[in-house]
């Protein structure tokens, strides 16, 4: 499944990149993220989602594929939960905009297990919602950083 879209972040691209490179701030930006620890070229994470058929606590990794501060943040996401798994390769572009940053993303993802059988229909919608919440979080953290 391919998902793509864009969302606004109320902070400039350079600040957004700083948040993305800071485990504590990144964790606070991610909705439902209970744990985020550096691990090799990325992070180990635990994240809770409370929406419909994709509800559950997911554990897994974020592997950073490419990070060009202020411009680009590509990563591979692998999450597992009792109800299935999510794997996604996500390409993110950061562009300056009137309000701060326009974050554009494209993700090639795969769902597995009951999650795929039941969650397929809502997955794209949930992903869009989570991205918006993440961008709000990024904005908040970046503002904090700037005011810091």
């Amino acid at each position: 499944m391919e998902i793509s879209g864009s969302a606004g972040v109320k902070a400039p691209p350079a600040a957004v990149s700083q948040v993305l490179a800071d485990p504590a701030r990144l964790q606070r930006s991610l909705p439902g993220c209970r744990q985020l620890e550096p691990d090799g070229n990325g992070y180990r994470i635990e994240i809770s989602i409370g929406v419909a058929a994709v509800r559950g606590t997911y554990q897994g990794t974020i592997e950073v594929l490419r990070h060009e501060p202020g411009r680009q943040f590509d990563f591979r996401l692998m999450l597992e939960a009792p109800r299935g798994f999510v794997e996604a390769t996500v390409a993110t572009r950061l562009d300056e905009s009137a309000q701060g940053t326009e974050l554009r993303y494209t993700a090639e993802s795969e769902l597995g297990g009951p999650l795929a059988a039941l969650g397929q229909r809502v997955a794209a919608g949930v992903a869009t919602m989570l991205v918006r919440q993440f961008c709000d979080g990024l904005g908040r953290e970046a503002q904090g950083l700037l005011q810091g």
């Binding site: 795969e110 795929a116 059988a117 039941l118």
Partner: peptide, 14 residues
């Protein structure tokens, strides 16, 4: 089923 063998029609919704 998806390309990797995931059942995509796992309920009466689909």
């Amino acid at each position: 089923w998806g390309d990797s063998g995931q059942l995509l029609t796992g309920s009466f919704l689909d």
